[in-house]
């Protein structure tokens, strides 16, 4: 007994595509709008910047000049900016649970569907 899927109407097809689109765009833009997105480098500019104080040797100063930056003050923010890698263990655990839980869920549901496929494909009538 092969499973006979219902025929989908055009409106239904369009509706399904729109659902997926809304989900996709939502996933990308919601973190953006909530302002939660992105790692920010925080500059810690030093007072009275000179190339030496910024730790740039002669060759590096030449390189900065070739990139169009001759004034150490202009490079101050770029050179001193650092990421903040402190994180909360709670957030890490939430993420781990999400990722692992997701894969477990998908594989289990897939397996249920897969048994049906194999049943129908290799069932008694076929071979």
């Amino acid at each position: 007994m092969a499973y006979k899927p219902p025929k989908q109407s055009l409106a239904g097809q369009i509706f399904d595509v729109l659902t997926l689109l809304v989900l996709t765009i939502g996933a990308l833009y919601i973190p953006l709008y909530l302002g939660l997105a992105g790692a920010v480098k925080v500059p810690n500019p030093i007072a009275n910047p000179t190339w030496e104080a910024l730790g740039q040797n002669a060759a590096e100063q030449q390189q900065w000049a070739a990139l169009g930056i001759t004034d150490p003050a202009a490079a101050n923010d770029i050179i001193t900016a650092r990421f903040d890698y402190s994180f909360s263990w709670a957030a890490l655990i939430v993420m781990a649970v999400l990722v692992i839980g997701y894969f477990v869920m998908v594989v289990r549901l897939s397996d249920r569907e897969y048994r049906e496929v194999i049943e129908e494909r290799f069932g008694d009538k076929k071979r």
């Binding site: 997926l20 989900l23 996709t24 939502g26 996933a27 990308l28 919601i30 973190p31 939660l36 997105a37 992105g38 790692a39 990421f83 890698y85 994180f87 957030a91 890490l92 939430v94 993420m95 999400l98 990722v99 997701y102 869920m105 998908v106 549901l109």
Partner: peptide, 19 residues
Amino acid sequence: FLGYGTQLSAMMCFYIVAS
């Protein structure tokens, strides 16, 4: 996760809902 944890969570939620 170091720096982009929010995106990671948002993405996982997206794939869970889609699944």
